[in-house]
Design a protein around this nucleic acid. Structure first.
Lengths: 215, 215
DNA sequence: AATCTGATTGACAAGTCAGTCAATGGCGGG
DNA sequence: CCCGCCATTGACTGACTTGTCAATCAGATT
């Protein structure tokens, strides 16, 4: 009789509590922005005292750093898993990557909001840049590899680095639109935008609706 | 003998001082991020007391709001001027718009950094969204009009709204890359990326290096 | 049951920051 | 030359925030 399904126990295992605080931090960042995120607010969201937050994370700095690392790792885990399930065909691989970017589980309002908050601060904080920079680099590298394979397959007159960059910024850009635009469009519009960009880059592989074309 | 070219007078005309404070705010936002921007820091950057900042702007909120409005208006003024000088040809017009986005005067490290800081907070602050949202809307509308004209000219199978969005997010995305990337690429790389996107959207108008193609 | 360990709380200290205000200073108009 | 007005300063306040710490509490072990 260890688990009580209704009420969580007052004391929680170390890792469980840390995870809960990180989730609360993500929610707070999204709701109030980086500038107005306070330990007290995070604690209130998690339903605990603010002393406990510091007990588990030592300082606000470290809490934010760990939250960013958590987000970066979560994202990397997901896209690598998607890639593993996509097989060898680069066309399948890139569709899998894009699918991850619009998977509702990862693309929550809260998670995108937290990303935004970190982005805004990253330019003035080298620690943030290095934190997510390394994981980001492997994503970019993979994207470039896939684009290079597609280009080789059907001889597009295109630089794989540039193509990969275009696709990435279109994905990121539509995310940002969804977060910051005065009157945002639907998620499906965002996906359609990315698919169109994909078709423009690789017209012999994809139609603008994202469907595959045979050789 | 009103103007002393060497030392600015201790007291400054209302508008001149306000402008100076706004510039200092932009610099501070870029250097320290939104979360760590304080009135004292802004005042120090401007070389005045922090009481004077509040004398001119009433509150920190208003200072930031006016700074954002200033940036939005400055940007709008520039792209509209560029458009006025570009003539009737939509191909010229879109090249002019892109040229503005990479004009060194506007695309300062400080200005991009300040934009970043505001972006990061915008998602959790409706006031920021409306502030730049309206000006942004006219930019988007103009972009869509131009894209529609290009599409009509040479019958591309493309949605003008989508095309305009792709071009905009590629521009914004390369900006963000320059600001936040761990190891950023050169501004020229950014321009090349945008030009490639342009050529992919309108291949009968533009080559990938940005040069014009004749009908 | 007694004890031990580690999670948890809440009161507190120290520092910071936005905003206030009375006093000062310089500039232009009379 | 004097006066009034507005810009300017810098000390001050009150609120808030981060971080500390001693006391408490729950659960596991013996």
């Amino acid at each position: 009789m260890t688990a009580d399904p209704e009420k969580p126990p007052r004391t929680l295992a170390r890792e469980a509590r840390r995870l809960q605080v990180i989730e609360a931090t993500i929610a707070t960042l999204a709701a109030r922005g980086h500038a107005r995120t306070t330990l007290t607010e995070v604690a209130r969201t998690a339903g605990i005292s603010h002393g406990l937050v510091l007990f588990h994370f030592d300082s606000k700095e470290k809490l934010l750093a760990e939250t960013l690392a958590f987000l970066a790792e979560e994202y990397q885990t997901h896209w690598q898993a998607a890639l593993d399930g996509a097989g060898e065909d680069p066309a399948d691989q890139i569709l899998a990557l894009i699918a991850v970017d619009f998977a509702p589980a990862l693309t929550t309002q809260a998670r995108l909001g937290a990303w935004c908050a970190f982005w805004g601060e990253a330019q003035s904080r080298p620690d943030y840049q290095t934190a997510c920079g390394e994981k980001d680099a492997s994503y970019v590298a993979k994207m470039e590899t896939i684009c290079a394979a597609l280009i080789r397959q059907r001889s597009y007159p295109l630089d794989p680095v540039i193509a990969a960059r275009i696709l990435r910024v279109v994905i990121e850009g539509t995310w940002l639109d969804l977060m910051t635009l005065h009157t945002p469009y639907a998620v499906d519009e965002a996906r359609r935008t990315v698919m169109t960009a994909l078709a423009l880059c690789f017209p012999r592989h994809f139609a603008q609706d994202g469907s595959r074309l045979r050789a």
